[in-house]
Write a protein that binds this DNA or RNA. Structure first.
Lengths: 199, 199
DNA sequence: TGTACATCAGTGAACGCGCGTTCACTGATGTAC
DNA sequence: TGTACATCAGTGAACGCGCGTTCACTGATGTAC
């Protein structure tokens, strides 16, 4: 099933991922994606009804990748549950820092997740990886307490990504408490996680 | 020192705050701010060199307000230190949820904080309110451990704001674990904070 | 197998829009004598 | 106190730009007979 280009739909999605990470989801244009894919600016409309539906694909890819790397971290069965949990936290934060613009898109309200079931599924999938390891780490925990723990640690790593990305504080020339503390955390993320996760 | 309008600079800043919260910082335009202030679209240029410098003022106001409400929460001297800390956490989260677009601007990279010292100061001011209460709550703690605790709790509430705002998960029609857990936390924020803050 | 036709992926020009910013201006306010 | 002038806040038209999307098209591919 090859027409002209071959597989432009796929090509457009990966171009969109590249452009999103390069320019940021609020500055990326459909035109720049088309250019990246080396097709005319109207070609995407053969495969995506709107710009939003293409962005939804980018977001879905992001969540799918996040889920996979979390699974990989949790799959290191030579490690203790505790160490796998730590590994997942670190993995999550590194993802958020290295793919910051994609991470932003994933958490941006510009895409209405309820209109893209596949996107919602991939987002929930990443969350459930956290549920698994926390259930293993806390045997016999009630469902409600497990839920609360999940949100707790999710909020912690999500928030940390947000703070660490804020270079103006982290790398502030001004010698402030906030700047100092941020540098401390950034330079030894693992130690921070250990103390924050209260082991 | 009243010309024509009187105090257009102030008026523009408060109009900008209104428009920012209404439209979101990435969708607000200088033109709409001018319209809100009932002046021509070029009038702002008499008081602000660029759009960015006006946005910096909005962000500064946000941090200043945040600092003030945190101070107010911490000033309720009839409460125990623990309860004041809880109060501050709740206050922070409620601010993030009720002024979500302003909160976004405050954490957005569109404004280079290092170019607006007053903005940086106000941001650091809010942070220092957290330092105060945590120092009081943990007498004799080392400076380094205090820093780490600050980042820890700041990340927690910051992350929670991010998650709770994500309505597609929180109010998801689909009956997912993530949706359930989020609803649980949202409906009783205080209980969640108590368990998350590990008292 | 060859031909006529239908389908459909990709093109290039054009649309209308909102934006930040510039510019020459007007007219009110402040000031020097 | 009155007048002439300088200052400067706010105006309205215009600029150039990039954007999402539409449209009529072209030309390659697939299909029926």
């Amino acid at each position: 099933m090859k027409y002209h280009h071959g597989n432009l739909k796929e090509e457009l999605i990966s171009s969109a991922c590249i452009v999103c990470e390069a320019d940021g989801h609020d500055r990326m244009s459909l035109r720049s994606i088309a250019k990246e894919a080396k097709v005319s600016q109207t070609a995407p409309y053969r495969h995506f009804k709107t710009k939003e539906s293409l962005l939804a694909e980018v977001s879905t890819r992001g969540f799918t990748e996040l889920k996979e790397i979390l699974q990989n971290a949790n799959a290191k069965k030579t490690l203790s549950t505790r160490d796998r949990f730590l590994e997942m936290g670190q993995t999550y934060i590194e993802f958020g820092l290295s793919k910051r613009n994609t991470y932003d898109l994933m958490h941006s309200p510009v895409i209405d997740k309820t209109q893209f079931p596949e996107l919602l599924n991939s987002a929930v999938g990443a969350f459930e990886e956290l549920v698994c390891v926390l259930a293993e780490l806390n045997p016999g925990i009630s469902a409600k307490d497990l839920d609360i723990k999940c949100i707790h640690y999710w909020a912690l790593v999500h928030g940390l990504v947000g703070l660490l990305r804020n270079d103006s504080l982290a790398e502030s020339e001004i010698d402030t408490k906030a700047g100092n503390a941020m540098g401390l955390v950034k330079s030894d993320l693992r130690s921070f996680l250990i103390s924050a996760l209260e082991f």
